[in-house]
Nucleic acid binder design. Structure first.
Lengths: 239, 239
DNA sequence: CCTAATAGTGCCAAAATTTGACACTATTAT
DNA sequence: ATAATAGTGTCAAATTTTGGCACTATTAGG
């Protein structure tokens, strides 16, 4: 049995029975007494506080406060959580916001120091998404909110996006691009993307995009070109 | 060698070299090509985005956005985060809820399974019954819709905007700025603008702005400075 | 077109790690 | 004194991981 699953079973058994003995746990999870002892040593090492009493009538007891979790979150995930908690608190409707903050503080602290810069850089693409779903204003009139999911997916999975694009002269073409960021300059939304056909970054007005679909497993080599060096000035995006 | 340690070494190697090949990594960490390939499959499974190109001149590239963090959260903290995200989603106002969910799913997965059940049960009863109704979307408010026209004009005509701003401490100042974008983190709106006096980008909470008026014939050139180097982190925008 | 260099997969035997059994020590209640 | 418990050390057996090999697919260059 997978060690992870077995350790989970041990914790479960301890919690269920309150106090337990190694023999009982071994029976419970279907492993030998020796193995359970080894696993418990590991769990203690990982921060679980497991009290024990030797002797007749003795046993094990899991300190309930010591239940912790480790999870590896991507910067994007941390950010999504940040947005969520910050917005809720700002709205004054988040109970336990102190706890949520404490949790997030831990997560942020666990980010390697150079990732703080990454986090800021990531703002680019988030700027966009952060705004996206519910902006319900006459502003938004010019772009179809139904388009957004495909773009979100494309950003996050880093897939190519294919769509129909009607340019300023009304000519319609099919594009296959690698999305880099969303830029919102009310009332227009722009997709900033690498166009591999033309080998350059382009802005696409969202209200001129139709039938988007993301193409899994991009057949184009990814651009690792720093964003800021390659995006054409915003000015040019304005017709 | 321990698989965790080896995977860390692979990530380190990828980050150090930017682009790399399997053969080089294998040399680097002292394992066979086959093993590196297996490890990379696992890393991808765990959320690392590793791009690859076959063929002569091909190789691997670790997407910097997939940088991950490990943090130990107590059950209470996870709980608070769950409430936050679930409430936001229930109210339909959480952007990138997919990401937040993914993050929380990871956290939950790392919790003993009975805890997860407890959390879910509690959450279901909580957000349906208590939280969701409190989220009032009409409260998009906090910002006066009457302000928008002036801002729209400023954006479109690319004029400077002057307004009164009351900061977190209640102090009121007059600002003259060049609007760049609107950042919407419901229910708060932020104006992202270049402040020529202070020579930096600033966030202004819209609900703290009053008496806006645009100044025709801006004497300031519009800034196209990349966001990431100049915008203060969103977090700091929340007092 | 051909060749070299690369990512990726399937298979299997060898290598390494984990597990279980057993013998042991120390502690405690009856 | 005895029974029941936590905990440790050792070693062979069981299981998992690893490396080697043969393979396919893709790409760049000659």
């Amino acid at each position: 049995m997978n060690i992870r699953i077995r350790q989970d079973a041990i914790i479960r058994s301890l919690r269920r029975n309150g106090t337990s003995t190694i023999a009982v746990i071994a029976q419970d999870v279907g492993a030998s007494r020796r193995t359970i002892l080894r696993d418990i040593a590991v769990l203690r090492d990982e921060g679980f506080v497991i009290h024990s009493e030797p002797g007749r009538g003795g046993g094990l007891y899991l300190d309930p406060q010591s239940v912790q979790t480790t999870a590896r979150l991507s910067v994007a995930e941390v950010f999504a959580l940040l947005i969520s908690v910050a917005s809720m608190r700002a709205a004054g409707i988040l109970p336990f916001s102190g706890l949520a903050d404490a949790g997030l503080a831990k997560i942020e602290k666990a980010l390697p120091s150079d990732k703080v810069r990454d986090l800021r850089r990531f703002l680019d693409s988030l700027y966009v998404g952060a705004l996206a779903p519910q902006v319900d204003l006459s502003d938004m009139g010019r772009m179809d909110p139904a388009l957004l999911p495909a773009f979100e997916t494309a950003f996050l999975k880093r897939h190519c996006l294919q769509f129909h694009y009607r340019d300023a002269k009304g000519a319609e073409t099919t594009r296959l691009v690698e999305p880099q960021a969303m830029l919102i300059l009310p009332p227009l939304w722009y997709l900033v993307a690498w166009d591999p056909m033309r080998q350059e970054f382009r802005h696409f007005r969202m209200d001129r995009i139709s039938k988007p679909e993301y193409v899994e497993g991009s057949k184009f080599r990814r651009r690792h070109v720093p964003f800021e060096d390659n995006v054409r000035p915003i000015r040019q995006a304005f017709p």
